[in-house]
């Protein structure tokens, strides 16, 4: 990937945060966050059809701008003014809202407007209906797949199994963070400042890993995680798998808090499976093993072609408020003791 990046003539990055990618950009166009800008309205054709207005809650900080502004300004400079015959997004939204019998003024007051459903959303009992398939029916056996030479009935294919000492790498989310872009927010950082490696206590025992042991991960292709994370022993994960919250292990130094915190799952995902029919990608088929000793910087960089000039930084352990700081402040984990007393 680094090679691909270095081969570009020009890289322009539009982002709300100084992410990894912005470090490679020739030009960075800082975008205001969703709370600081107007956006196109959300239209939902749900059970209750509705439109929702999105307006700034606070003024944009620094010289960040909304994406519509960047597009318009670029358009003007490229001599494409005629495609932007409006002053700002409010004008566009007002016109759009008027097409459905509302207005910017009204939407500013009510935020969300609902409309009556024009067509029934459920089938009535016994009602005739043709689905968009060859037979017009719900096809458990897909005649379309059969025609194109694929399995017409889903056939079970066994997933790969890890070698001894390796575990399925499972990643997901924490409710307080959104992808990789909120880790540097002071409040959210305070709540959940790093990810942990969830390990089943039985697996941990084999390795002599305890709660809060520092560890690095190495995948089936030898890629080592750039930073470490602490172990979290929990029954919420199977003994043959480990789990991590995605979005950590940032390397951009401008992410003053988040940089160097936790393990990034992305470099450890070197094997990607592609669904032969619809092209979907499966990335939870990678395996990792634990490194209990800190690997050398050179070893880490060589393992994955990480950017060498990014020095490895040890997460400074900042002790916070006495008791509420276990794994994450304000989020005490698994107080078995407390529970047992009660239930």
């Amino acid at each position: 990937m680094f090679k691909a990046i270095e081969n570009q003539d020009l890289i322009v990055v539009v982002d709300t945060m100084p992410m990894e990618m912005t470090g490679y950009a020739d030009v960075v166009l800082p975008e205001s966050t969703y709370l600081e800008r107007h956006d196109y309205s959300r239209a939902g054709k749900n059970r209750v059809p509705q439109i929702a207005f999105r307006m700034p809650a606070v003024e944009a900080k620094y010289d960040s701008k909304p994406a519509w502004w960047m597009a318009k300004e670029l358009g003007h400079r490229l001599g494409l003014e005629k495609y932007y015959p409006w002053k700002d997004l409010e004008e566009v939204l007002d016109w759009q809202f008027k097409q459905v019998g509302s207005s910017l003024e009204e939407m500013k007051k009510i935020g969300v407007k609902t409309f009556p459903s024009t067509e029934p959303i459920y089938l009535l009992p016994g009602e005739d209906y043709e689905f968009n398939t060859n037979t017009g029916k719900i096809e458990l056996y897909s005649t379309d797949f059969a025609e194109k030479g694929y399995d017409a009935m889903p056939k079970f294919t066994r997933h790969d199994s890890p070698d001894p000492g390796f575990y399925h790498l499972v990643y997901g989310r924490a409710p307080m963070h959104t992808f990789g872009r909120t880790q540097n927010n002071p409040y959210l950082f305070d709540l959940y400042e790093t990810n942990n490696v969830w390990i089943n206590p039985r697996t941990a025992k084999l390795w002599g890993i305890e709660n809060d042991s520092d560890l690095w991960l190495k995948n089936q292709d030898g890629v080592i995680s750039e930073f470490s994370a602490k172990a979290r022993l929990t029954e919420r994960i199977r003994p043959d798998s480990i789990y991590m919250v995605h979005g950590f292990g940032h390397t951009n130094k401008h992410l003053s808090r988040a940089k160097g915190r936790g393990i990034n799952d992305i470099p450890l995902i070197t094997k990607i499976k592609i669904d032969p029919i619809m092209g979907g990608t499966g990335m939870r088929n990678n395996f990792v093993t634990f490194l209990l000793e800190e690997p050398s910087k050179e070893e880490i960089i060589a393992s994955a072609n990480y950017k060498a000039e990014k020095p490895k930084e040890k997460a400074a352990s900042k002790k916070k408020s006495e008791k509420k700081s276990e794994a994450t402040k304000g989020h005490k984990q698994e107080s078995h003791k407390k529970e047992e007393a009660k239930s």
């Binding site: 509420k324 989020h331 529970e339």
Partner: peptide
Amino acid sequence: VVACQTENNVPLGYCRDWIVEAVKGTY
């Protein structure tokens, strides 16, 4: 937790309310 911190100027690193995650059973 965050709403309380911002509403009541609770300094970062402290909290007036907190979440307890309780797990029972063995996989």
